[in-house]
Write a protein that binds this DNA or RNA. Structure first.
Lengths: 210, 210
DNA sequence: CTAGGATACGAATAATTATTCGCGTTTGGT
DNA sequence: ACCAAACGCGAATAATTATTCGTATCCTAG
């Protein structure tokens, strides 16, 4: 299956310099998404990705040191995108905090549900991604954004309380969003659950010192 | 890797009739748990399980039709145990509903965290377990228990509201519990999160018609 | 005590997979 | 037009794995 390799899985073997290789890398990443969505984590193989992309395995391995690196790259891109969305909504100071929280959770849940097959397969294919420093850094940044939001949402809380509150908001949001996405819910269901979660968290933050 | 087989993965190939084979089956299940805990889902192989159990692969395949059936059996046993605990706590009418909810969530979270390596590996090793009818039945029973509890916790809510409430309680509890367990938290952290979640859910149920 | 079913064994089988490597092709600068 | 580097290829390699099956051993009923 796998040869032993302790090299960092994220370091590319070679960087694309000509236009054709840049397109090749893009094609591979796009194909990887399609393979994950259509075949699932179990059937995510380098040969299948290469075939789907219309290139050969050898070409794939010229720009990705191993299979994991493709998956890691997709994970990073996923989180960067949703992270930016969260950041934008929570930082929109033209809205009152509770409105921001509700809007953000709705957006997050819908995003999770729309890309459910991809995200679930991606999570299943990268069982140790959470331990990776990249993942920890991304989530730390997410928690930081939420913590800054809490300065507005719970101004009278102590820093310690705010840290706990941010952790709770972040954890509840991400975990419920993930589980909800596994059920393939309707839009109405998503909104219902999102609003319930947002209401509970709003109440919690008010208790904390809103 | 795997030969095609469309037979139900849960049907045992043969039932143990003599004492030694009954012990063999027990040894295999016990070894499977240890392999999952110590090696993880990725390294869960039939040979490793057989070796750990001190038996041969051939013997293993005499009582389990395939690798999946071992994992499915462990999943079923896991959920039966925690399901019974939830049932007992929520049904204890000597306590007020909000107290029951808090106790149950604490117990559930601690149970999840204590067995985190096993549960996480088990989930990773059975990516399609949630689609299996056995799993759906177990969770349906769990939701039913929560729904019955809501009759006491939110007596003035409509049946529809109670159904939604039960879904929310169940989903929040299981998803947050799972995510929490992945962080290897201290007991104090577990209690803090459990109490926060319990408080939020209690407030939500009160809004619903407590 | 003994035969026949139950049990246990583990090397062999067959399939799958990640990754490599040598060779032919294309590209872009001069 | 030419050449060196970049690129692309895919059969070959090596490792791993689930599962089978022929054979040897054990247990128990009669």
């Amino acid at each position: 299956m796998r040869r032993r390799s302790r090299k960092p899985v994220t370091a590319p073997r070679k960087l694309p310099v000509q236009a054709r290789s840049a397109r090749l890398v893009a094609d591979i990443l796009e194909a990887a998404v399609r393979v994950l969505e259509r075949e699932g984590a179990q059937r995510f193989t380098t040969i299948r990705v290469a075939e789907t992309a219309g290139v050969s395995v050898g070409s794939l391995y010229q720009y990705f040191p191993n299979k994991q690196s493709i998956l890691y790259r997709l994970q990073v891109e996923e989180w960067e995108q949703t992270g930016a969305t969260i950041d934008a909504i929570l930082g929109d100071t033209t809205q009152p905090p509770q409105q921001r929280l509700r809007t953000m959770i709705r957006a997050f849940f819908h995003s999770e549900c729309e890309e459910a097959p991809l995200r679930n397969a991606l999570d299943a294919a990268t069982p140790d991604y959470h331990a990776a420093p990249e993942s920890r850094a991304k989530r730390e940044r997410g928690r930081h954004v939420v913590r800054r939001f809490l300065a507005a949402a719970a101004p009278r809380a102590t820093p310690r309380q705010r840290a706990h509150g941010a952790e709770l908001v972040f954890m509840t949001m991400t975990s419920v969003g993930k589980q909800l996405s596994e059920r393939r819910p309707t839009k109405a269901e998503v909104n219902r659950v999102a609003d319930a979660i947002a209401s509970m968290l709003t109440w919690y933050l008010a208790q904390l010192g809103g």
